[in-house]
């Protein structure tokens, strides 16, 4: 390239402390900072739903399909229940479902990917072919298979979403593990006398920690969407319990008269997914500030290279 770009100097000193890294990430990653703030709000809404919601989410508190007003800030639903209270309580249910199913997918998927990537070729083949079979069913379909087997319900949704993301987690961990495997320091650890599992735990996993954290925090958004889809289709929580996906679905029949019944829970789902996407990025830039710096540097290089050639 004809354009000479000055090497980026990393301010190493400031990154030694967690505080310095958080400050750095907050200054250079404003969407991440904003997302973190909204995520905190979401969690507060979920935890404090009993305190924050003005009404009982399952009680009929007014006339049906009342537009947003001072008394009902987000209007009432098809039966006359308060949409705001239902959305706040729904946050609780949705976030718990998303966190549990993400935990399930990571507890099973991440070790599978690591083991398949690092252990013998034979093991790798068996595990990855099994993953390929599961991946032949697009996410929602795999979840619906689980629903067929277990029958609809709250636990089913957690298991179904967890199972659907397990092969994806496995696949995403497999690649990086595979490439780390060939590094000299892994061979060195083996020579020193580390067993295979110890190498995996002490040498491979720490290197992939950033990947795992980013994966898990972004996955909250994916699992939220899939869980909401299952609830939307009517395979999750039973009415009258509040749930974003189910409430959205229930509002469709009133779309012409009362748009807010469907629009509000839908917006809540969208915000959760958006936040989760940026949150992963933000956490990554705290754990590994160099990564943020590099990505910024790369964008700058690209921009300079392009304008330089033009």
């Amino acid at each position: 390239m004809s354009v000479a770009v000055a090497p980026v100097q990393a301010p190493a000193g400031r990154w030694q402390t967690l505080r310095g890294r958080v400050a750095f990430a907050a200054r250079h990653n404003w969407p991440g900072l904003l997302a973190t703030a909204v995520a905190v709000l979401l969690v507060v809404a979920a935890v404090a739903a009993p305190l924050l919601s003005p009404y009982n989410p399952t009680a009929i508190v007014g006339p049906p399909r009342l537009p947003p007003s001072g008394q009902f800030l987000l209007g009432t639903d098809g039966l006359g229940r308060d949409v705001l209270s239902r959305t706040l309580w729904g946050a609780r249910h949705t976030l718990i479902t998303a966190c549990l199913s993400t935990a399930l997918a990571s507890v099973v998927g991440v070790p599978l990917g690591l083991v398949a990537g690092y252990l013998s070729q034979w093991m790798s083949d068996v595990v990855m072919r099994a993953m390929d079979v599961l991946l032949a069913f697009p996410g929602l379909l795999l979840a619906l298979i689980v629903v067929t087997i277990l029958g609809p319900g709250v636990t089913t949704v957690v298991v179904a979403v967890g199972v659907s993301y397990t092969p994806i987690f496995g696949r995403l961990m497999y690649g990086p593990t595979r490439s780390i495997r060939t590094h000299d320091y892994i061979a060195a650890a083996r020579v020193v006398g580390y067993g295979r599992l110890r190498v995996l735990r002490k040498e491979v996993l720490p290197v992939l920690a950033t990947e795992v954290v980013v994966l898990v925090s972004s996955a909250i958004g994916w699992t939220t969407l899939l869980a909401a889809t299952l609830d939307f289709l009517g395979f999750g929580i039973r009415p009258p319990a509040p749930d974003w996906g189910a409430d959205l679905s229930a509002g469709i029949q009133y779309l012409r008269q009362a748009w807010w019944i469907s629009a509000v829970p839908g917006l809540a789902i969208t915000v959760t997914i958006l936040v989760s996407n940026y949150l992963g990025d933000f956490v990554a830039s705290i754990i590994d500030p160099d990564r943020l710096y590099r990505s910024h540097a790369r964008v700058r290089d690209t921009a300079q290279a392009l304008t330089g050639v033009e």
């Binding site: 469709i252 469907s262 629009a263 839908g266 789902i269 996407n277």
Partner: peptide
């Protein structure tokens, strides 16, 4: 980020 089923509802609206 926008769930396709929600987008469907917004488009219908």
């Amino acid at each position: 980020a926008v769930p396709y089923f929600w987008l469907a509802i917004l488009l219908i609206l």
